[in-house]
Amino acid sequence: MTTWITTCDTCKLDGWEGRDTAKTDGESFAELIETAAAGQVAVRTRRVSCLMGCKNACNVAIQGKGKLNYTLGAFVPSHEAAEGIVAYALAHAESDTGRMPFREWPQAIKGHFVTRHPPLPDDS
Rank of each mutant, 00 (worst) to 15 (best):
A38M: 14
G39L: 14
E17K: 11
D25W: 11
V43H: 04
E34C: 12
C11E: 05
D9C: 05
A22E: 15
F29C: 08
C8K: 01
W16E: 01
T10G: 04
L13I: 03
V41W: 05
A30Y: 06
A36S: 14
T7Q: 08
A36M: 09
D20A: 14
A42T: 10
A37V: 07
L32D: 01
V48K: 08
T10N: 04
A38V: 11
R47S: 04
R19Q: 11
Q40F: 07
G18A: 10
A42K: 10
G26V: 07
V41Y: 08
D25E: 13
C11Q: 03
T35K: 15
G15V: 01
R44K: 14
E34R: 07
V48R: 10
C8F: 02
F29H: 08
T10K: 03
K12Y: 03
A36F: 10
T21P: 02
L13C: 02
E34P: 00
R47C: 04
G18Q: 15
A36H: 08
C11W: 02
E31T: 09
E31H: 08
K23T: 13
D14N: 11
D20P: 00
T24I: 13
T35L: 15
E17M: 07
L13S: 00
T35Y: 06
A38R: 15
G39M: 12
R47H: 03
K12T: 07
R44E: 15
D14S: 12
R46L: 08
S28I: 15
A38N: 13
L32S: 00
V48G: 01
V43E: 05
A30I: 03
I33Y: 05
T45V: 15
C8H: 02
A30N: 08
A22T: 14
K12F: 05
E17W: 05
I33C: 09
A30P: 00
A22D: 15
G39W: 10
D20T: 14
E27R: 04
C11M: 03
T45M: 10
T45W: 07
A42N: 10
S28H: 14
T24V: 13
T35G: 09
L32Y: 06
A37M: 12
Q40L: 08
V43T: 04
T35W: 08
T21K: 11
D25K: 11
D14K: 12
